[in-house]
């Protein structure tokens, strides 16, 4: 098992190296560069940009170097924790991301927990009460969850929160707390704002996850070993949760592994709609404006989370199912 993990980490490194090259190339691929935007902007403002200034900027950003030289400068810096500088914000990428990452991760982790916390019991309930009225009701809600796009749910919830609860919506803090130092009141204010994005993000994935849970559990409930468990005289709850659910978890674990990159990118649409300062919208804008290092850094983080998620999922699977434990 230890060997297997080390081997997998080796493969991960190779995968990431390939992604780094491809990712960097793709981000750079569209014609033009951020510098051209910048020069055009300065000229528009009436400023006369001299050739010397342009030269100075080109040297500063290393735009005269061939692509591979720039790539190596960036990637060697990346490994050492120096992600380069954002053109747009004229700040270190590291500092830019750091500010927003805490919010992003807390929103994503909470919505992930909420989605799982609801999806698993609901899926189990509707599988064990198949074709009863509660199951039908759950099914209808699930299909609504699957088919309504998240930005719409966000808009509806925002309206409801404002009209019914009189809450200020959008952003993470009310005006009076926006720049205030941390206090308990500010924390409560944060929670008041946070629940909408968490519910919105959890909504869609809960529906999908509980559908999968229901389908898998139905398969497993038909297995002979479930009857064996009953024939021992176990309580029905124990038969379901200990003997059936454990064998129905595989697809959910694989999905959980795959959803790790979603911690960064998943809430983008919702965050844009609700004007929340997470990393999603920033990544989106970085791509739009060809903010090379910012975009490439995001891409690398997403990829790292992606391969890491898959590794964790495989380890978790092996823990759940002895049949796929590796030598």
């Amino acid at each position: 098992m230890i060997n297997y993990i080390f081997r997998r980490i080796g493969y991960m490194m190779v995968t990431l190296a390939i992604i780094a090259v491809l990712g960097y190339l793709i981000v750079e691929l569209p014609p033009g560069s951020y510098l051209e935007f910048e020069i055009a902007r300065l000229r528009q403002q009436g400023g006369n940009v001299s050739q010397d200034q342009i030269k100075a900027l080109e040297i500063r950003y290393g735009l005269n170097d061939p692509t591979y030289v720039r790539f190596f400068k960036w990637i060697t810096g990346f490994v050492r924790g120096d992600f380069g500088e954002s053109f747009q914000y004229r700040q270190e990428v590291k500092d830019l991301i750091g500010q927003r990452l805490a919010f992003t991760i807390s929103i994503s982790v909470f919505s992930l927990l909420l989605a799982w916390g609801i999806a698993v019991p609901v899926g189990v309930y509707s599988a064990t009460h198949r074709n009863t009225i509660p199951d039908y009701i759950i099914t209808v809600i699930q299909f609504l969850g699957l088919s309504i796009p998240s930005f719409l749910v966000a808009l509806v919830l925002m309206v409801v929160a404002q009209r019914v609860f009189g809450q200020q919506v959008g952003g993470l803090f009310s005006d009076e707390f926006q720049n205030a130092p941390w206090s308990f009141a500010r924390f409560i204010d944060l929670l008041k704002h946070l629940w909408i994005p968490i519910v919105v993000i959890a909504f869609g994935s809960t529906a999908g996850l509980s559908r999968i849970m229901r389908a898998n559990l139905l398969d497993v409930l038909g297995m002979q070993y479930v009857q064996t468990a009953r024939s021992k005289g176990l309580k029905e709850n124990k038969v379901i949760w200990k003997h059936a659910v454990k064998n129905a978890m595989h697809p959910l674990i694989m999905i959980l592994g795959g959803s790790l990159p979603g911690i960064i990118s998943g809430e983008t649409v919702v965050a844009i709609v609700m004007n929340i300062p997470t990393v999603g919208p920033m990544y989106f804008n970085a791509q739009l404006n060809q903010d090379l290092y910012l975009a490439a850094t995001f891409l690398m983080f997403l990829s790292i989370l992606g391969v890491l998620g898959n590794l964790l999922a495989d380890i978790a699977l092996a823990w759940v199912d002895p049949r796929i434990r590796f030598e």
Binding site: Y225, R230, G233, L234, N247, D321, P322
Partner: peptide, 25 residues
């Protein structure tokens, strides 16, 4: 019934390949 089942009467099934839970020893 549960105190009878498994203690007083028990059952062996047709398919030994699937009648034991794959996740437990």
């Amino acid at each position: 019934m549960r105190s009878i089942r498994g203690a007083q009467m028990s059952m062996i099934f047709q398919e030994p390949m699937t009648s034991l839970n794959p996740s437990y020893t």
